[in-house]
Structures are given as structure tokens and as C-alpha cells.
């Protein structure tokens, strides 16, 4: 049982680290992108513009946020 519990915990930790980690804003971004993709599926000119734009915006914001955070810590 302990082995199974440890395995489940390790599995959960892997996915938490993978999906959230220290960049929860990226998970929020992806959820939003998926929602927009589903909402805009009948607006064929809008989705192919909106989806890349939203993705780029979140990437730039997250990167800038990471720059401030890593810079304030002064270490990698």
C-alpha cells in the first residue's frame, strides 16, 4: 500500500509540476486558449487571428514576469 501511495503521490506531483509549477499563468493561458478555440469555432476568420495573438500576449507577459522575479532573486 505504501508503494502504491508513493507512486500516486509521485504521479500527482509530476502533473502538478508539469501543469502549474512556477508558471501558473501559462496554465491559465492554455485554458483560456482552449475556451476561445471552442467559442470561436464558427467564426473562422476570428479564431485563426485571436488564438495566436492571445498565445503571444501570454508568452510575453509570463516572460516579463519571470524576468522580474528571477532578477529580484538575483539567482537562476
Amino acid at each position: 500500500m505504501r508503494v502504491i501511495a508513493r507512486g500516486v503521490r509521485a504521479f500527482g506531483l509530476f502533473w502538478w509540476d508539469f501543469l502549474v509549477g512556477d508558471t501558473p499563468e501559462l496554465l491559465i493561458a492554455v485554458v483560456l486558449i482552449v475556451a476561445l478555440a471552442l467559442l470561436l469555432r464558427h467564426h473562422h476568420d476570428a479564431d485563426i487571428i485571436v488564438l495566436p495573438v492571445v498565445t503571444v500576449l501570454f508568452l510575453v507577459v509570463s516572460t516579463f514576469r519571470g524576468r522580474r522575479r528571477d532578477g529580484s532573486r538575483g539567482k537562476p
Binding site: V34, A37, L40
Partner: peptide, 12 residues
Amino acid sequence: LFWVGEGAGAHW
């Protein structure tokens, strides 16, 4: 991004 759009019904 391509697969999210494609799977949701976007026409790239």
C-alpha cells in the same frame, strides 16, 4: 496551438 484550433474546429 495548431492542434487546439484544429481539434476545436478551426480551419487554418
